[in-house]
């Protein structure tokens, strides 16, 4: 049940005809409703004043409308309406395509790197001399050789040597998969003391010759991440695996 003040405001807002006697009696003694009524009356008065305000006669003539109605017909706007958007879209796409096509080839830094750096290791699957197969003749898994990038780290051999030519290195590495390791690689492996392998960038000077106090960072031991239920396929580089692999086995490695 609404109180009389709410009923009165509702009556004002809904324009519901004559004020009921009960609300009239309430209006006589309620200051709040008297204020609302005075505001409403003044509002009505203002509205009446605006309604009675004279509006000038319009000067708009039919000839003006007719003239403007004819104007668009002379100009074939419709002919261009459907053309601009597709043309702009096509132009933007063509521009992006050209930019994408040209940028890598013309970039001077990339061109310089291509000339100066040897290409990364490849197993030579496209080579005519290669007879690589994923499995050896007895069915055991052959491990992948470690990648040999120009800026990757390699076990330090104790002496600074010039890196082999890229093509020669790739061929050698491919051969190593099928035969015993090269003397050079075995030498490198033997030169590294167990558990504290020294590293040097390919072609970089031995830092220990420059600073005797230099201590290379120790490698953190590999900790299995898969918990107790994870099986890892043991991999020994340059040796055929003794464990029979199944198709579900996977070798996950990072460099």
């Amino acid at each position: 049940m609404k109180n009389p003040c709410e009923q009165f405001v509702e009556w004002l807002e809904t324009e519901s005809g004559e004020l009921p006697p009960s609300l009239r009696a309430h209006l006589d003694r309620c200051v709040h409703c008297q204020h609302e009524y005075a505001l409403h009356s003044a509002y009505q008065k203002a509205v009446q004043a605006v309604r009675s305000e004279p509006v000038p006669a319009t000067q708009v003539q039919w000839s003006q409308i007719a003239q403007r109605l004819k104007a668009p017909q002379a100009r074939p706007r419709w002919a261009w309406r459907g053309v601009w958007a597709p043309a702009l879209a096509f132009g933007a796409m063509a521009g992006l395509g050209i930019l994408f096509w040209l940028t890598p080839r013309n970039h001077p830094e990339l061109a310089r790197l291509e000339q100066t750096n040897p290409k990364p290791f490849s197993v030579g699957t496209t080579s005519t001399q290669s007879t690589d197969t994923p499995l050896s003749s007895d069915g055991s898994v052959l491990p992948m050789p470690p990648p040999t990038y120009s800026d990757s780290v390699v076990p330090f051999s104790g002496s600074v040597e010039e890196p082999a030519e890229p093509s020669q290195r790739a061929t050698t590495s491919t051969r190593e998969l099928k035969s015993e390791p090269s003397p050079h690689r075995r030498e490198m492996a033997m030169a590294s003391p167990e558990g504290a392998t020294s590293f040097a960038r390919n072609g970089a000077p031995d830092l220990r010759n420059i600073n005797p106090t230099f201590q290379p960072l120790e490698m953190e031991p590999i900790v299995p991440q898969g918990g107790e239920n994870a099986d890892y396929l043991s991999v020994n580089y340059n040796e055929a695996s003794q464990t029979e692999a199944t198709p579900s086995d996977a070798i996950i490695c990072s460099f």
Partner: peptide
Amino acid sequence: EDIVQDVFL
């Protein structure tokens, strides 16, 4: 008046 013209157009 401008608006009225535009309305009819």
